[in-house]
C-alpha cells in the first residue's frame, strides 16, 4: 500500500496503490491530507489504477477528502478506476461528490 503525490499547477494527483481497506485507509488519509494542507489544490485527482482491492473504507476515504476540499470550493476527480471499484463507487453514489471517469480505463492525466 502506498501513495505517490504530484502537484501540477493547482492540481494535486494522488496515485494510490495496494488494497484500500479499513486497515490501510488511515495511512492514505494522512498522506493525502498533509499534501492538501500544504498545497491547497483547486482539484484533487485520485488515481485508482494500481488499487487491487477496495471495500467501503475507500468510499469513506473519498467522503472525508470531499469534506476537507469542499470547505474552500475545491473538487475531486476519480481517475483510472478498475471495473470492480467503479461498481462500488456507483453503489455508493460517489458521482455526487466527485467526477468519475467516462470510460472504464480513462488515460492518466
Amino acid at each position: 500500500m502506498s501513495v505517490e503525490l504530484k502537484m501540477t499547477g493547482e492540481v494535486l494527483t494522488a496515485y494510490l496503490s495496494g488494497e484500500l481497506d479499513h486497515h490501510n485507509a488511515r495511512e492514505m488519509r494522512e498522506a493525502v491530507d498533509e499534501a492538501i494542507e500544504l498545497n491547497h489544490p483547486s482539484m484533487l485527482v485520485l488515481d485508482f489504477g494500481q488499487i487491487g482491492f477496495m471495500d467501503s473504507s475507500g468510499i469513506g476515504f473519498i467522503m472525508g477528502r470531499y469534506r476537507n476540499l469542499s470547505r474552500y470550493g475545491a473538487t475531486i476527480h476519480i481517475s483510472d478506476a478498475p471495473p470492480a471499484i467503479l461498481k462500488m463507487m456507483k453503489l455508493a453514489g460517489v458521482e455526487k461528490l466527485a467526477t468519475l471517469p467516462k470510460t472504464v480505463k480513462e488515460s492518466k492525466k
Partner: peptide, 14 residues
Amino acid sequence: GGERAGLGFAVMQS
C-alpha cells in the same frame, strides 16, 4: 461517523 461511510451492510446485500 468520521471516515466510515455507513455502507457495510448495503455492500454485503448488494
